[in-house]
Design a protein around this nucleic acid. Structure first.
Length: 461
RNA sequence: GAGAUAUUAGCUCAGCUGGUUAGAGCGUCGGUUUGUGGUUCCGAAGGUCGUGGGUUCGAAACCCAUAUGUCUCCCCA
């Protein structure tokens, strides 16, 4: 058979894994530095845990796992099974008899589930980060996979806007460390959007308005106007929306202008104030070296249903790519699982996209090239024994080393060493063995000298 | 879920409006006295032309279906 992998999945070769680990390690150390603790949850959840959490579209994209042992069911169950099965064949449908489990769709819902299950043992506010793969039955495209990794960082059990500010700092620190240029953190507030819907005279159509606004970047004002009309928002409302979105200037100026516009909307004013406070906190925490810009953007929507307060999205202008991350405040996430009144805020890093961007911009550190440090050429016979003894001592000194396992032709061994990218090649041949020395060749410069094992080890370090 | 487009050797790609045994570069392997790679020279292997049907005297090429990649819509990280 012809080998293949499922649609939208990828193998990661050694060099790719090293680069991905570099991203993970960078993020991990930042998360830890901000006091977040690691969490891992199962690849699969009970289907019931996931359905209804991501909207209609989301439900469709959940990878469901067929129950095993279906053929072993009792006859009485089989009748029911047949019935459910034919429903499934005629339309999208699921039932516990056919599928009880599904693959994780994101990290936030499993996190909420975990918090509720362990509420008595956790110290609130609880700060956790989580870096694991998630699965979506989406149609793959550039930067969009069926299996991809999310890195989430959330705080639950605190309504303080210090949390929002810290998460913005984490974004800034991370993209600064990763050396990705032209990063913008767009921030907005769901409350401000609600206020905008109010003053546009369509308080109940906030979602529709938001979805249309979110496309402003892509389809421009003409397109958005059309969409708003289609969604039943009248000319006067559209004018008000345009007026508010059209506000330009620095964040401070924008906020002042927005306050003015939102005077009649309590919730809108609240949203602005939260943005103002978040930015103020962020400035106190900010480091001078971070280059990324924080931008208040009233057209920012974010799709997820559960956000209620400040929302944020990260983009770069350096490469054409969707958002590199996003997040926001969700006031009652755990309420879905029976734990009311616990507010949370979190951000997510789209590390697959971050990888693609970094590769395109060529900003990975050069020392991430694959390959070990030292290779010993195998000359066979007594020389092989000598080489093995030397090999062990190099390893004992904490230096990654290996021997070519066969006494193959010299040329072949050298070519292999070259391809693997070793920093040094050791030649333990007759002369070296007799003198109890080693010929060490620096494979970058080509320079070679005969020295003692101790000197060689110093060189390798 | 809808549409567009691509798929030829391990990789990147040629292959003329359908016409003999489908080519190149790189890589791989072998040889060039088993002590000098990245950087000599010589040679070889490697292809059900994504898969399955169809049209035709004849299909890599035209038609249909299907898989996978890429792009647009939708949605999203």
């Amino acid at each position: 058979m012809k080998p293949s992998i499922p649609q939208g999945t990828r193998d990661f070769s050694p060099i790719v894994v090293r680069r991905r680990q570099y991203i993970f390690n960078t993020l991990r150390s930042i998360f830890e530095n901000y006091g977040f603790q690691p969490l891992e949850t199962p690849a699969m959840e009970n289907l019931q845990t996931l359905t209804g959490k991501y909207g209609e579209e989301g439900d469709r994209l959940i990878f469901k796992i067929l129950n095993n042992g279906l053929h072993e069911k009792k006859d009485s169950d089989k009748e029911k099974l047949n019935e459910e099965w034919s429903k499934l064949l005629s339309k999208p449908y699921s039932s516990p008899i056919i599928t009880e489990r599904a693959l994780r769709y994101d990290l936030t819902i499993p996190f909420a589930r975990f918090v509720v299950m362990n509420q008595n043992d956790l110290a609130f506010p609880f700060r956790r980060y989580q870096m694991q793969p998630v699965w979506r039955a989406d149609r793959p495209q550039r930067g969009r996979y069926r299996e991809f990794w999310q890195c989430d960082c959330d705080v639950v059990g605190s309504t303080s806007l210090i949390n929002e500010a810290e998460l913005l700092c984490i974004y800034q620190a991370a993209f600064h460390e990763l050396n990705i240029p032209k990063i913008t953190l767009k921030i907005n507030s769901r409350k401000l959007l609600a206020g905008l819907a109010e003053i546009a005279g369509v308080p109940l159509q906030m979602m529709e308005m938001t979805i249309a606004l979110d496309k402003l970047d892509k389809i421009g004002w003409d397109g958005v106007t059309k969409e708003l009309q289609q969604r039943g928002i009248d000319e006067n409302g559209i004018l008000r929306i345009k007026e508010v979105i059209g506000i330009n200037g620095k964040n401070i100026e924008k906020i002042a202008a927005l306050k003015n516009q939102m005077q009649s909307s309590e919730i809108g004013l609240q949203g602005i104030q939260e943005l103002e406070q978040t930015i103020a906190y962020q400035q106190q925490l900010s480091s001078g070296v971070w280059q990324s810009e924080i931008l208040v953007d009233v057209s920012l929507a974010r799709g997820l249903n559960y956000y209620t307060g400040v929302i944020v999205e990260v983009t770069t202008d350096a490469v054409k790519m969707g958002s590199l991350g996003g997040g926001g405040r969700y006031d009652d996430l755990t309420g879905l699982f029976g734990l009311k009144g616990l507010s949370g805020v979190g951000v997510s890093f789209g590390i697959d996209r971050i990888y693609d961007v970094m590769e395109e911009l060529n900003v990975f550190p050069v020392q991430l090239v694959p390959g070990g440090k030292v290779m010993l050429v195998n000359f066979g016979g007594e020389n092989e024994s000598y080489a093995l003894k030397v090999l062990q001592q190099i390893r004992n000194a904490g230096i990654a080393a290996e021997i070519y396992p066969d006494a193959a032709k010299f040329d072949k061994q050298m070519k292999y060493a070259n391809k693997r990218g070793f920093a040094f090649v050791v030649l333990p041949g007759d002369e070296e063995r007799e003198k109890q020395l080693l010929s060490v060749k620096n494979f970058t410069t080509g320079e070679q000298q005969m020295i003692s094992l101790q000197e060689a080890i110093l060189k390798f370090q």
